[in-house]
Amino acid sequence: MNIFLLCGLVCFSALAITMHNLLKSAICLGVASIFLAVLFFRMGAPYAGVFEVSIVAGLITVLFITTIVLTKREGGVKERKLTNIFFLLFFIIFIMIDFFVMKGFIGNLPNMPVGSPNLAENNNFSKVLWQYRTLDLVGQICAIFAGVFSVLALFRADKKENNNE
């Protein structure tokens, strides 16, 4: 079952870059995200799946579509015609290389003891996130601040113009 989800993920990602219409690309990306989210559920990572659906498939797609609409008037750029053919060609070659490399690894990878004792007990997600990875939360706050201020800095010229008007 997982293998189909993975294939779907890769197919939709490939579609996202081969589509000529940007809106369709963005939507393909969203669909790929949903595949990934389902995969996360199946792998026992429900919270990551929820985030993937709500933020990546939701928020990011919305952001993309907003930008596309804002820049639509003259923003159409024609990609090179051969790009898609080249993509197919290289992609097939890459898949073959990938397959052989991974096959070469089978049996050569070391077997390791399961988990370190420190973490094996932490099966409660909220405990892990809040107690084990607290610093990351601080980092998240920093990152959000950074993103917000960057966006503010980039759009401050508007305000100036508006004030002048």
Binding site: A45, A48, L59, R133, D136, L137, G139, V151
Partner: peptide, 25 residues
Amino acid sequence: NVMVTQSLVITFIVIEVSLLATALA
């Protein structure tokens, strides 16, 4: 130990969104 990586992924996604917002701006 999927719980740990789950929290990592959430942080990663948050950072990705900030990055993307900046890039789109």
